[in-house]
Simulated assay, not measured.
Amino acid sequence: MKAISIQKFGAPEGLAVVDLPAPEPAAGQVVIATEAVGVGGVDAVIRRGTLAGFGFEEGHIPGSEVAGTVTAVGAGVDASWTGRRVWGFTGMGGGYAEQAAARVEEVLPLPEGLSSVDAVTLGGSGMVAHFALRHAHFAPGETVLLRGAAGSIGITAVQLAARGGAAAVAVTTSSPERGERLRRLGATHVLDRLGEGGEEAPAGYDVILDVVAGEDMPSYFDRLNPNGRMVALGVVAGMPPADFGTRMLARFQKSLSFASFSADTVPVADRNAVRSEQFAAAARGELATVVHESLPLDEAASAHRKMDAGEVFGRIVLTP
């Protein structure tokens, strides 16, 4: 089968098409013939080598979520899965391929009316947005700032915060055009990438969700209200400064909180329940999925160049 491998950490040119044996399902696994593969920010972080010290090596096949049809099942898996359209989580790799293996407990059937492309646009990011807001103890009437809202996590979080009764949903993004698109999804205030601008934007926020991190992250502690909570969901712009916590402690009397969030800490059954609800809502047209572009699998490097250039609004999907 055809797959995409990180031959060299760094630039997107390090991604290459390789021929590999098709996976055989281990006990408890299914094999999915992929129709759509989600391209996420974490894939770019892995490709750059940022997580090289966390078990990722050159030769890694990126991609964590796929959608398609089950073609084979391993020992202990009900044979009725064969032939079903599903969404599947492949772990932290293996998705950029024509076939991918996933544990059956990380596989969900797709409802009628939801395409494979929409499924991988929502499946991972929508669930993260849901549980990140819960991790931040978001409550109706609070003000929320979403840093890096033009990605698939931010786009869903905007919708969920607005529907959850937020008093204000502010977003940071790179252009007025993107800001207007986010307004149509529920944003009330649009800020630039530095968190500036936005007429009559709240003076402070009860909750900040940050998928960007990087050197500017500590400055956002200044924007938190008393008892405000910042939750880091990713490091798209790189790791924050090692001493970033000193900025928070300098505002000790405001009782601020900082947390990281990974969906790995959420039980699989809970993740699946939220995904199923969101898939059904998207199929009914009640939850928007935003696909920036669909590209052939062998154009994965092009997809990553677009992400690195900040061109993507929503999610790029690879179609084997």
Rank of each mutant, 00 (worst) to 15 (best):
W87S: 03
E196D: 12
P109E: 15
P111F: 07
L133V: 05
P202G: 02
G151Y: 13
G148N: 15
P140R: 09
V144F: 05
T156M: 04
V171E: 03
E180C: 04
A119M: 14
V211G: 14
V207T: 08
M92I: 14
G197H: 13
D192M: 06
S125M: 08
A157M: 12
S174E: 08
H135Y: 09
H137G: 12
G179I: 06
T90L: 07
S219R: 14
G179N: 11
R147D: 00
L209T: 04
S219F: 14
V107E: 03
E142W: 01
L209H: 01
T188C: 15
L146I: 10
M217C: 09
A101K: 01
P218N: 00
V104Q: 13
L108K: 06
G198D: 09
G198L: 07
I208Y: 05
M92Q: 15
G197L: 09
I155Q: 01
T156I: 09
S219D: 14
G88C: 10
I153M: 02
W87H: 02
T156V: 14
D222G: 15
P140D: 13
L209G: 02
G113W: 13
T143F: 02
V144T: 07
G164K: 04
H189N: 07
E199D: 11
S116A: 15
D210K: 05
V211P: 13
M92K: 15
M217A: 11
S115W: 10
G214T: 07
V171D: 00
R193S: 13
